[in-house]
Simulated assay, not measured.
Amino acid sequence: MADNTLWVAALTAGTAVLASWVTSRGTARAARIQADAAAATVQADRLRAARRAAYVDVIEQAQRMGDLYWKVTDAHGITDAGERLGALEELRLRLRGEYAVLRQRVWVVELEGPAEVASAADRLRESTSENWRALGAMIAGEAGAAQRFDDCFPPFWESVVAFVEVARRALHETRTD
């Protein structure tokens, strides 16, 4: 009888050790899965935050340029030719500086992605080219240049709105790329 008790005790102890080992492996695996999921969530949140910041920077910069475009239209209405020319030249210098900032911010969006948002940002950047040329023509005194400049604003603003829409979709569709 004592021998059976010893075997039962040994079998029970072995079963307990095996059960403990299996449980600890399962717990460790579950903890690893949970830690990996938490890390992936943190990474996705960081990516989304970086993208959102980059997108907001482009939108803010486009708004600054749009405000200067309105000032160009106002400056063109100045009756004194010398004062008008000075105001237009000063605005052109300011726009050149603002364009440099826009270009840098578009590059950040290209870095952050995704590709469709980067393309929309680049289209926005390119939409400023005609405004720039028309402003140069206004300064040079070309006939119809002011109307050309005014006609450039709607396509520019449409590119801003298109960028906002693509960026919004990208932020809300996925958390990672």
Rank of each mutant, 00 (worst) to 15 (best):
M1L: 15
A2T: 04
D3R: 10
L6I: 12
L6P: 02
L6F: 07
W7L: 10
A9H: 01
A9V: 05
T12E: 11
A13K: 03
G14N: 10
G14L: 14
T15G: 10
A16C: 09
S20A: 00
W21N: 07
W21L: 12
S24M: 10
A28I: 11
A28C: 04
R29W: 14
A30G: 09
A30P: 03
A31I: 15
R32L: 14
I33W: 06
Q34Y: 01
Q34F: 00
A35G: 03
T41K: 08
T41R: 04
A44G: 13
D45A: 04
L47G: 00
R48H: 12
R48Y: 12
A49N: 09
A49P: 02
A50Y: 07
A50V: 06
R51Y: 08
R51K: 09
R52W: 09
R52M: 10
R52H: 14
R52S: 13
A54I: 11
D57Q: 15
V58A: 00
V58G: 02
V58E: 10
I59A: 05
Q61I: 10
A62M: 02
G66V: 04
G66F: 01
D67P: 03
L68F: 00
Y69L: 06
Y69S: 04
W70F: 11
W70T: 11
V72P: 09
T73L: 13
T73A: 13
D74V: 14
D74M: 13
A75L: 04
H76D: 02
G77V: 01
I78F: 02
D80A: 07
D80N: 12
A81M: 09
R84K: 12
L85T: 07
G86W: 03
G86Q: 05
A87D: 03
L88Q: 07
L88K: 01
E89R: 05
E89F: 00
E90S: 06
L91F: 00
R92Q: 00
R92G: 03
L95I: 15
G97S: 08
G97K: 04
A100P: 05
L102T: 05
V106A: 11
V108Q: 10
V108A: 06
E110D: 07
E110K: 09
L111F: 05
E112A: 14
G113R: 07
P114A: 03
P114M: 13
A115R: 15
A121K: 04
D122A: 13
D122Q: 15
D122S: 15
L124M: 12
E126K: 13
T128R: 00
E130F: 04
E130D: 08
R133P: 02
A137D: 06
I139M: 01
I139E: 00
A140Q: 04
G141S: 07
E142T: 04
A143C: 04
G144W: 02
A145F: 02
A146V: 10
A146Q: 05
Q147Y: 09
Q147K: 13
R148W: 05
F149P: 07
D151S: 06
F156D: 07
W157E: 06
E158Q: 08
V160G: 08
V161M: 07
V161Y: 00
A162Q: 12
A162K: 06
F163P: 09
V164K: 10
R168K: 06
R169P: 00
R169E: 13
L171N: 11
L171T: 13
E173R: 14
T174E: 15
R175Y: 14
R175K: 14
T176C: 06
D177R: 12
